[in-house]
Amino acid sequence: MVIFHNLIVSSIGCSCINQFQIEDFFLNNPDSYIEKGVFDYIIISPQSTIDLFKSINRYQQVFEDINNYEILKKKLFHKHFECLYFWHEKYIFNEFDLKKTILNIKKKIANINPVPGMNHLLIWSNIQPNLKIMMEGIGQDYNNFILTEQLYRSLKEQTKLLYGENSRLIFISREQDVQGGLVSNSDVHIIELERSLDFRGEKKLFFNIINSYINQKS
C-alpha cells in the first residue's frame, strides 16, 4: 500500500502486480510513502479476499494459529481460505521460522483496518501475466480467479462495510477474465495484457486508471 496525503492506495488481490504498479505510480513522489500491507505480495482468490475481510474481527484466531499454515510447492499456504498464498515469504525451514513469519503477517494484517480521516482507493485485479500459469502449476483452479457478478457485488459490499461509503474500489482485468455483463461497468477497467511469465507488467500500466481517481480527489 502507498499513503499519499489523506489517501491510502492499496491492493485487495489477486496478486503482486497491483503493488508493483501502485509503487510505480508514486515513484519519486516526495508526498507519498510505502506502508507494508498483507495484500502487497500475496496470491489470493476473490472469494478468499471476501472471506479475509469477514474474518478481520477474529484475525488472531485465523492468522496466529500455526496449524492454519502449510508449505505447498515451497509456498506458504493458509488452509483457512480457498486460495491464499504468501508468495514471497521465504526461508521457512522449521517451526521457528514459521512463527517469525506469522508475526510479520500479523503486523501486515493490522494495516487492513481503516484509518480515521483517510480516503481509501482499493485496487483488485486478475491481470498479472503469469497468474494463470502459476496457479495451474501448483494445482489451483484458475476459474476461481475469474471475476463473476456475484464476486464483484460481494467485494464491493465488503469494502464498503470495512472502509465506508467514501471508499472507492476499482477492478482491472482482461475481458475474458470477467463475466460478460461487468465489462461495461464504470469501475471495471479492461486491459488486454498478454499472458506470459512476466509478473510486474509494463511500466505505468495502471497509471491512467490511478491518475483519474487522484484527479477526481484533488
Rank of each mutant, 00 (worst) to 15 (best):
S218M: 06
R174Y: 02
I123F: 07
I3T: 15
N6S: 11
V188N: 02
G139E: 05
V115F: 07
N166Q: 13
I170S: 07
L197R: 05
T148H: 08
D65C: 13
D65F: 11
Q47W: 00
Y91P: 00
G13A: 05
I133S: 07
N126E: 00
Q61M: 14
E64D: 14
F77Y: 15
I123A: 04
E95G: 01
F93L: 13
E35H: 10
T148V: 06
V2A: 04
F199P: 01
F199S: 14
Y85W: 05
S32R: 12
I190W: 03
G201R: 02
S55G: 02
F63K: 01
D198C: 03
S55F: 09
F39W: 04
N6V: 13
L76V: 03
K74N: 15
N113H: 08
E194F: 00
Q60H: 10
L98P: 12
I34E: 09
I191M: 13
K90I: 00
I17T: 02
I109V: 15
R200K: 08
L205R: 01
C14K: 06
S15P: 08
K106R: 12
I138P: 00
K217N: 11
R168S: 13
S45C: 09
S173T: 09
Q21I: 03
G164R: 02
N166P: 07
L162Q: 12
I127F: 04
E64S: 15
E89Y: 07
F81M: 00
M1Q: 07
N111L: 13
I43M: 10
V2K: 11
R174C: 06
Y142L: 01
E82H: 12
F171Y: 04
T49R: 10
Y142Q: 13
G180F: 10
F77A: 06
Q176A: 07
S10N: 08
H189D: 03
L121K: 03
G164Q: 13
E192M: 09
R195A: 08
L103C: 02
D97T: 10
I66P: 14
M118E: 11
P46W: 00
G164L: 07
C83L: 03
I172V: 11
E70S: 09
N111R: 15
V9P: 04
L151D: 07
E35V: 14
S48D: 10
F77V: 01
I56L: 15
T101M: 05
N94D: 15
S45R: 04
L155Q: 05
E70N: 10
